[in-house]
Amino acid sequence: MASALKKIGFLFSLFVPSGVDVFKQWRKDRAASSAEIVGLLKANRDLANRHQGERCFILGNGPSAKKLDLSKLKGETVFSVSNGYLFPGYGEFSPRYHCVPQITYGLMTEEDTVRWFNEMHEGLGNAELFLSSNEAALVRNQHLFPGRNVRYLSLSGSFDEWPDEDLVDISKAVPAVYSVPVMVLMIALYMGFKEIILLGVDHDQFLTSRYDYAFDLKIQKGKDITLNKDGSSSFSRYEEFRGLFRLWHQYRSIDKIARKNGVKIFNSTPGGALDEFPRKDFNEWFAVK
């Protein structure tokens, strides 16, 4: 995104008097102020230990989720992510929370994002929404998500700077994430959940050579700059493996924090490549004792 913004600024400088100043003001008008972000983050303090001692399910969008009877999630506390509102039967198990990480602009324009957020709002039911603070000004200026409780995370920095034993405090800046389940795990830990179960978190595109979803995309179809038109990765193996190392490192860091705070994270994804958490069959969570 930064390189694209620099190119726009250069064009302004060629065709508009004082073009760079105009561009800087354009960018400033679309960014939430530091004071506004601090206020938005402070609002998250009432989430601390909201679900003390409970369990939750984090539903990723990987194709493995099609193998699960998601109707069993009815009555459970569920986090959905990104385009997850497109799951067939979404309204039946009605996730309580929905999370979207920082948006990478490129093929995905600001206008596309507005359309996507409107589509999301229509599909989310009553879910409470978490976004990156990068989108706070856009939501405010475009009057998006009317009547919905929208919260923000300031995603910046690295887990290398975070002590292993400390829960990530989402009322302050938190590490940027390489995949949305990491964002959700930080939120779930802050909320006090003691059992966190991952579903549909496949991360196996380096094995399948494709990035697929459990449903058909709508607004976001063809907007991912990391994918070719056929769904294959646009990255070289070198770039892909560097990204996977960073992602796995984030999961390992989260697991260390969870363990030191008495929280258990399980992976109940049927298949997939993520091996940082113990496995437990999805159906076992609903077995009658």
Rank of each mutant, 00 (worst) to 15 (best):
N134V: 09
N134P: 00
E135M: 10
A136Y: 05
V139I: 12
V139T: 03
R140T: 11
N141P: 01
Q142R: 13
H143K: 13
L144M: 07
L144F: 09
P146A: 07
P146K: 03
G147N: 05
R148H: 12
R148N: 06
R151N: 09
L153I: 08
L153T: 07
S154Y: 11
G157Y: 00
F159K: 07
D160K: 14
D160I: 10
D160N: 14
E161Y: 11
E161L: 11
P163W: 05
D164T: 10
D164K: 07
E165L: 03
D166C: 12
L167D: 04
V168A: 08
D169H: 02
I170M: 08
S171T: 04
A173V: 10
V174C: 03
P175Y: 04
A176E: 12
V177S: 10
Y178S: 15
Y178I: 09
S179Y: 13
S179F: 12
V180F: 11
V180E: 06
P181I: 06
P181D: 01
V182W: 00
M183G: 09
M183H: 05
I187N: 02
A188E: 00
A188G: 07
Y190D: 01
Y190F: 14
Y190P: 03
Y190E: 00
M191G: 04
G192P: 06
G192E: 02
G192C: 03
F193H: 01
F193K: 00
K194N: 04
K194R: 10
I196N: 05
I197H: 08
I197M: 03
I197K: 01
L198Y: 06
L198C: 06
L198W: 08
V201S: 08
H203W: 09
D204Y: 01
Q205W: 11
F206W: 13
L207C: 02
L207R: 15
T208E: 01
S209F: 15
R210P: 00
Y211V: 13
Y211S: 15
D212V: 12
D212A: 12
D212R: 11
Y213R: 15
Y213V: 06
A214F: 04
A214H: 02
D216F: 09
D216E: 15
K218I: 15
K218R: 14
K218S: 11
K218F: 11
I219K: 10
K223A: 05
D224C: 12
D224I: 10
I225Q: 12
I225S: 14
T226K: 07
L227M: 07
N228R: 15
K229H: 14
K229S: 13
D230A: 07
G231M: 05
S232D: 06
S232N: 03
S233M: 13
S234I: 06
F235H: 14
S236Y: 04
S236D: 10
R237N: 12
R237H: 07
Y238T: 13
Y238R: 13
E239V: 09
G243L: 02
G243R: 12
G243W: 02
L244K: 08
F245R: 15
F245Y: 15
R246G: 14
L247H: 04
W248T: 15
Q250K: 02
D255W: 05
D255N: 15
K256E: 10
I257G: 01
R259D: 00
R259T: 09
R259W: 10
R259S: 11
K260M: 14
N261F: 06
N261P: 09
N261Q: 06
V263C: 07
V263K: 09
K264E: 15
K264G: 00
K264Y: 11
I265F: 03
I265D: 02
F266E: 11
F266V: 10
N267Y: 06
N267Q: 05
N267A: 11
